[in-house]
Amino acid sequence: MLLSKAAIGSKVKVVSLESKGLLRRRMMDLGLIPDSEIEVIRESPLGDPRAYGIKGSQIALRREEASQIVVEVVN
């Protein structure tokens, strides 16, 4: 599943990153590395971007960025 499709309030785990180069590096710097847990916290009033809880901080990502991250739901 893609992170951009994960339901609000759900907890997911990063499987892999599809982006390349600098963007990939930036995503990883934010803590989006395989196996790390992400909470889908909220969406903005217009639905995009959405805020994610990543390693203790709340980071907003646009759909374009979030759809490059493959995740799986954690129970």
């Binding site: 710097d29 803590g31 990543i54 390693k55 203790g56 901080s57």
Partner: peptide, 9 residues
């Protein structure tokens, strides 16, 4: 202190 792990990086 509220998100140590990210900062320790």
């Amino acid at each position: 202190g509220t998100c140590l792990e990210r900062n320790l990086n």
